[in-house]
């Protein structure tokens, strides 16, 4: 668990290959004859790279623009990864083997999502990556299956709604596709957890409306719900702006 919200340290090692100058330089070499056009293409990558200070201590600002959306996703994935890591570390009594295997797989997915977003932000705006957040799971009883699965359902449905609502805030099509690659996995998690609780509740009327549409939640709604489980105060006022 302590492994899952690790700050610093690990960053240097994996982030390095992403921006050591030689990498960029060789990229232009490969670009060959159209290097000029490619340089123009790439020059847009760093424009979100401005500082995010001015917040009171203990407050984490997600920042603005696409980087803000990526940090928003990174914050939610940190929360989910820490939650499932805790389930795997302290499984509730008599957890069936199949359930344990699936929850362990989900823990891996969320950990991968978390590190993926950290790498994605680091690649374009290293100074804007939010720090590792401190989870507060004091309201969840990890010894009790109903408490754990109830919280899992909340987190997964919240994640799906967050991504669905954030799509329109994303300006870059590449990031939009990446969010799409992840949101459907979160929806699969949500359906799985829901069916563990009540078979057939995979797309209940509480999340999918009468037009057959899964929920889309705005940033303040999601952060208000997520804040209960995060010690730092998260400020998402400029996400996507």
């Amino acid at each position: 668990m302590s492994n899952n919200l690790k700050k610093g340290g690990d960053e240097a090692e994996f982030a390095k290959p992403l921006y050591v100058p030689i990498k960029r330089r060789s990229f232009f070499m490969y670009a060959g004859a159209t290097a000029g056009a490619t340089a123009l293409l790439l020059s847009g990558c760093d424009d979100d790279d401005n500082g995010g200070g001015g917040m009171p201590a203990g407050t984490v600002s997600l920042g603005s623009g696409d980087v803000g959306v990526l940090n928003y996703a990174y914050a939610l994935e940190q929360l989910e990864a820490a939650f499932y890591a805790q389930i795997v570390a302290t499984p509730y009594a008599s957890m069936p083997a199949d359930e344990k295997a699936a929850l362990t797989a989900i823990a891996k997915h969320e950990e991968i999502h978390r590190e993926f977003f950290k790498a994605a932000i680091t690649a374009v705006a290293p100074s804007m990556v939010i720090p590792g957040l401190t989870p507060d799971f004091s309201k969840i009883n990890f010894n009790d299956r109903a408490s754990v699965l109830g919280a899992a359902k909340t987190f997964e449905d919240l994640g799906v709604g967050a991504y669905n609502g954030a799509g329109k805030l994303i300006k870059d099509k590449g990031y939009l596709l990446l969010a799409g690659k992840i949101v459907s996995v979160e929806a699969r998690h949500a359906a799985y957890i829901r069916d563990l609780i009540t078979p057939g509740s995979f797309a209940g009327n509480d999340v999918v409306n009468a037009a057959g549409l899964d929920q889309a939640l705005d940033v303040p709604t999601v952060l208000t719900a997520a804040q209960t489980y995060i010690k730092e105060k998260i400020n998402g006022d400029n996400v996507g702006k």
Binding site: A190, A203, Q215
Partner: peptide
């Protein structure tokens, strides 16, 4: 599909909302 819908936020979000519903179906 979603990358072709970016010009229209309403249609984009609707497509995303259908997308995750289909994903829930697939898992069931």
């Amino acid at each position: 599909m979603v990358e072709f819908l970016v010009q229209d936020n309403y249609i984009l979000q609707t497509a995303l909302q259908i997308h995750s519903t289909e994903s829930r179906h697939a898992t069931r």
